[in-house]
Amino acid sequence: MSFQEALYHPLLYTLVGMVILWVLGLSIWFAQSSYRYALKLGFTKTQLKKVITSSAITSIVPSLAVMLGLFALAGVLGNAWPWLRLSVIGSVTYELLAAELTATSMGVGFSELSSIGLSGLINVMFVMTTGIASGLVILMLFGKKIQTRVRLAAAKTHSFGTVALECFMVALVVTFLPAFWTLSWVHFLVFLTSITITISLGLLMQRFKLKWLKDFILAFALLGGMASSLLWHTILEVLR
């Protein structure tokens, strides 16, 4: 069997499909359980519908970016394997880099992967899976312990634990923001556009009492911010 035939073999699709169905089932279970528990905690069905709608709509645009990763990987690794890697554990940035690093360590460029033969292909699958599994193993071993401590900290409203919990978010902002801002002018301007849209829509919502808008602010700001990158690119090109 050739490398290309192996990439599109029905058995590979069947194996990948089984894993994806399992993960889909697990996601549905988590959604159902948390929905029922949220009702018990006093949330109304209308409130939960808001959460579901907003989360679903907001997920569409970033998922399109993940789909682009699928297109990038599919040219070399076929459809089935990238479909699995980008649906389970993986992320666009990780999978593209992992595929490239694996190819390089096997002595070929990413676009030349087809020259490594079938055992090379299976090796790529093993390496890409093993490399990303560390986080899951840690979560399996220590997830409950970490969360029990978080619960205890959050329960004491007027204690430093509450502040410490907020610090995780502060740390996230201060770690990631400078890295985005300084990547390029367009990155910085997209960030500013997105924040401007968020503030403007928030004001609009308050001024005209458009409560429904609250569910869509993130989606609009995300879409507007990304679309503005085309404008910023053009403006910066003209200025150069």
Binding site: V23, S34, G42, V51, S59, V66, M67
Partner: peptide, 30 residues
């Protein structure tokens, strides 16, 4: 409030829905 049971349930619901959407979109993409 962060770390509360309410936050936990809402976060789990939102992320599970997002996971379902992404898996379906990726499948559609294939």
């Amino acid at each position: 409030d962060k770390g509360s049971e309410e936050s936990d349930a809402i976060t789990t619901l939102a992320i599970s829905v997002s996971a379902i959407v992404t898996v379906l979109m990726m499948s559609l993409g294939v």
